[in-house]
Design a protein around this nucleic acid. Structure first.
Lengths: 221, 221
DNA sequence: TCAAAAGTGTTCGTTTTACACCCATGT
DNA sequence: ACATGGGTGTAAAACGAACACTTTTGA
């Protein structure tokens, strides 16, 4: 066990990848950003957006790069899901992949970049088939998302700048995939004290109109 | 973006390590297994037990190998903490490390192996200084442990086969680093219904004696 | 005037917290 | 007989779940 610094150089090295589980929210459904894979193996298969970590960036930076190349978004908050390190998880090579997830405002990004990358949004409750262990990554990310949503405001990035309480409720209903009671939801949200009510109302979805709200502050874990 | 399989081979590869955050429980304190590092850089510094992932094993297997080499324990349940991927986190080389944590019965492992590896237990609440980003790994692991303990029985591995309720309470008190009410603790534990009361009592710490209990079943997440 | 969505409180059961005394025994 | 740690129940508070009616307004 006594070695000098050549100890490092005697070790195996591996490709290290990142895969991004990108959630968005549209038409009251949680959406997942996927793309058609452009190279072998599994060319044409549905895949999470990913990439390889390069020398001059941290693993997290790498995930942020992948996502911002795809969406042109900056200042994205990404969080780790887990590492996927099975030997044959990628049939093309031994690749250790680290999954990250992010929540983005589906309307705020650059549509044309998605098209360029053969990327599109799928409804998370509908069926679709991802390659490799990507389904596991999505499942793990959803689990984290659900746990998180119970404790603290998510929705920063999933919601547009101004939104109504019925819209926010739809988001939570989509995350948990179940209907919530309007009064209990509002009570809970208001007790958490992270929203500011605006004077403006949104009449796009009702005659009466619903008040707009904004997040008070960015609260990051 | 259209590539063939040489796409893989054009990428950087990295050393991938595992670091093990090993918790034990002794004298009513949570202990952490650390060792004196045997090679540069930071030779002699306090470090988590770690190692490099090799070609013929998954990342998880690698962590299990490291831990079982050190303790001779088999069938250890390890869980991921996170990936640590900053560029300069290890001054010796670019190393992406994946931390795992485990809970082990401190009395059940092979003491002499620890000595051979310059390894020993430190009290987690006392001060000690770990190298690199290992303090962060420990902190992150503790956070996970605390969250988990609230929901489901941990302690399988931290406790000996038979244990008393006061002992188990001490474990929880150590995990949360705060005193718990005896009656509330017992009520909660009993409502979770995972213990079996034995007829035998432990008189080692009181005159009256405390009943031994065992875990009913292995319940894994 | 009516259809459609927004908004608003109360009750009930469950869970969590706080709290104090008796028991068994070895010395 | 007494000191030591083991064991037990109850009341108050906080929290989560269930539930129905009024308001506004555009068509």
């Amino acid at each position: 066990m006594t070695q000098n610094s050549t100890y490092y150089s005697s070790q195996n090295s591996f490709l290290v990848a990142v895969d991004c589980v990108i959630f968005g929210f549209k038409d009251n459904k949680i959406r997942l950003l996927v793309h058609k894979r452009a190279f072998e193996p599994a060319v044409g298969g549905l895949s999470l957006m990913g990439g390889f970590v390069s020398e001059n960036e941290s693993v997290l930076q790498s995930a942020i790069r992948v996502l911002s190349n795809l969406t042109s978004l900056k200042n994205i908050y990404m969080e780790q899901v887990a590492v996927y390190g099975e030997i044959n998880r990628d049939p093309g090579a031994r690749v250790v992949s680290c999954a990250f997830y992010a929540l983005i405002d589906i309307s705020a990004h650059d549509e044309s970049l998605l098209v360029q990358n053969n990327a599109f949004w799928v409804n998370i409750n509908k069926s679709y088939e991802l390659i490799f262990d990507h389904p596991q990554m999505v499942e793990d990310a959803l689990k984290i998302l659900r746990n998180k949503a119970a404790i603290q405001p998510i929705g920063f990035n999933l919601m547009p700048d101004k939104f109504t309480l019925p819209q926010l409720q739809s988001l939570y209903e989509a995350i948990y995939d179940q209907a919530l009671d309007k009064r209990n939801f509002r009570k809970k949200i208001q007790s958490m004290d992270f929203l500011v009510k605006l004077k403006e109302v949104d009449k796009s979805s009702s005659k009466k109109g619903a008040f707009y709200y904004q997040f008070k502050d960015i609260i990051k874990d």
